[in-house]
Amino acid sequence: MRTKLNLRESDPKLYLPERAKILKIKDFTENEKFFELALLDRPKLGHVPGQFLQVSVLGIGEAPISISSAPAEHNRFDMCVRAIGDVTKKLHTLNVGDIVYIRGPFGNGFAEKTLSTMLGKHLLFIVGGLGYAPLRSLINKVVPERDKYKKISVLYGCRTSKDRMYAHELDELSKIGGNVELLETVDKADENWTGSCGVITTLIPKIDFNPNETIAMVVGPPIMYKFVLKALLEKNMPKENIYIDLERRMKCGVGKCGHCQMEGIYVCQEGPVFNYAEVEKNEELL
């Protein structure tokens, strides 16, 4: 039997973005801004933690940006944007009330199936710099439901105290107590910083965890993964218990354009959240 060029279903809106209005903008650091947006044409985004959007500024282009808020039943969502390319720099010049265009949510995040395996476990978030933006979508989901988990530990490392994102939320997180703890470190301390100083891996020995009963979520700059993974494996953490969230050049978001393909894996489809055991042999990912 011949394979025919039979017509598969076309998605006429595949590359057509929808409107979102900027509701709130806050300066986080010199280079990072917080945006709260509202969808104008749909009741809710319908994402799972860890997914991303393609955000357009018309005439400038499109860039992949993590969704920073927990799944919600309303039309609002958050992003944190580092001004680094044309689109993100332009986003920084926009004002409350301006319209941007989005496609998505895209990618594999922490879906219901993954989340259910976390129940009753110790959740260990290991976050570097801007990595807080994507993981906040999960942290802000699990912290209000903290009774469902054995413990929630957030380890957060930044270059300096000025680079801390969501500073007031971090302060609140540190005050919750009970089974929620926040440990922070900076690479370079200044006069305003009284906490730990050193790379993120220096926080790992400070946490008391049973590797078999713990699920780790690791997000940060590319260089961080190697060291954090090594530290966790030395603590006998099973590879299946480690999730990583990776940044690549996602252009189309739908597994076609090829930019984010690392060996056989399209990060925009199978990632950006990966179970470490499933991708440990992929040399381009790690």
């Binding site: 060029l5 017509l7 598969r8 076309s10 998605d11 595949l14 739908v254 076609k256």
Partner: peptide
């Protein structure tokens, strides 16, 4: 090559620009 291109563009997330052309083409 067409067969592979077709699977790539149309198997998931049917690419509308590609499929519109396939629909109108006799090979």
């Amino acid at each position: 090559g067409f067969k592979i291109l077709h699977e790539a563009f149309a198997d998931d997330h049917g690419d509308p620009n590609y499929l519109a052309k396939v629909e109108q083409t006799v090979v």
